[in-house]
Amino acid sequence: MDTYKLILNGKTLKGETTTEAVDAATAEKVFKHAANEHGVHGHWTYDPETKTFTVTE
């Protein structure tokens, strides 16, 4: 398992979190669910070198 990071750049919610996942696709599902639960919808990017997802509203 690897550690993946999410950076939230929402209009009303900003922050960072991490998750352990077997691959980037699994981490993305976890992060998108969490972002949706917090009402953050926007443009997603992924940097494979740093294993970091970013969502920007």
Rank of each mutant, 00 (worst) to 15 (best):
M1K: 13
M1W: 12
M1T: 12
D2I: 13
D2H: 14
D2K: 13
T3L: 12
Y4E: 03
Y4V: 02
Y4M: 02
K5M: 06
L6M: 06
L6P: 03
L6Q: 02
L6N: 02
L6S: 01
L6K: 01
L6I: 04
I7Q: 04
I7C: 06
I7E: 04
L8E: 02
N9S: 07
N9E: 09
N9W: 11
N9L: 14
N9C: 15
N9V: 13
G10C: 12
K11E: 10
K11W: 10
K11N: 11
K11V: 14
K11S: 10
K11F: 13
K11C: 14
T12M: 12
L13N: 08
L13P: 04
K14N: 09
K14V: 10
K14E: 05
G15S: 13
G15I: 15
G15R: 11
G15H: 15
G15M: 15
G15Q: 12
E16L: 11
E16A: 09
E16I: 14
E16D: 05
E16C: 15
T17K: 11
T17N: 06
T17M: 15
T17V: 15
T17G: 07
T18W: 13
T18G: 04
T18A: 06
T18H: 09
T18I: 09
T18D: 04
T19V: 14
E20K: 12
E20M: 14
A21E: 04
A21W: 01
A21N: 02
A21H: 02
A21R: 02
V22R: 13
V22F: 11
V22D: 07
V22S: 11
D23W: 02
D23T: 04
D23Y: 02
D23K: 02
A24N: 04
A24F: 13
A24H: 08
A24S: 08
A24Y: 12
A25E: 12
A25C: 13
A25I: 10
A25H: 08
T26P: 01
T26M: 12
T26I: 06
A27K: 00
A27D: 00
A27V: 02
A27Q: 00
E28V: 05
E28F: 15
E28T: 03
K29I: 12
K29F: 08
K29T: 09
K29C: 11
K29R: 13
K29A: 13
K29H: 10
V30Y: 14
V30R: 09
F31K: 00
F31S: 00
F31R: 00
F31H: 00
K32Q: 10
K32E: 05
K32T: 05
H33D: 13
H33F: 10
H33I: 14
A34L: 15
A34R: 13
A34C: 15
A34H: 15
A34M: 15
A35T: 06
A35I: 09
A35W: 07
A35K: 01
A35Y: 06
A35H: 03
A35N: 03
A35V: 10
N36A: 14
N36G: 10
N36R: 14
N36F: 13
N36T: 10
E37H: 11
E37I: 13
E37S: 11
E37W: 09
H38Y: 15
H38G: 07
H38P: 02
H38F: 15
H38K: 14
H38E: 08
G39P: 02
G39W: 04
G39I: 08
G39R: 06
G39Y: 05
G39E: 05
V40H: 03
V40Q: 03
V40Y: 06
V40P: 01
H41V: 14
H41A: 10
H41M: 11
G42N: 02
G42K: 02
H43I: 14
W44H: 01
W44Y: 02
W44R: 00
W44K: 00
W44A: 01
T45H: 11
T45V: 08
T45W: 06
T45L: 07
T45M: 10
T45E: 12
Y46M: 01
Y46P: 00
Y46A: 00
Y46Q: 00
D47Q: 06
D47G: 02
D47M: 05
D47K: 04
D47A: 06
P48T: 07
P48R: 06
E49G: 10
E49A: 12
E49S: 13
E49Q: 11
E49Y: 10
T50A: 07
T50K: 07
K51R: 12
K51Q: 05
K51V: 02
K51L: 11
K51T: 02
K51I: 02
T52K: 02
T52A: 04
T52I: 07
T52H: 03
T52Q: 04
T52Y: 03
T52N: 02
F53V: 01
F53P: 00
F53Y: 05
T54E: 07
T54I: 07
T54W: 07
V55E: 00
T56I: 07
T56G: 04
E57R: 03
E57V: 07
E57I: 08
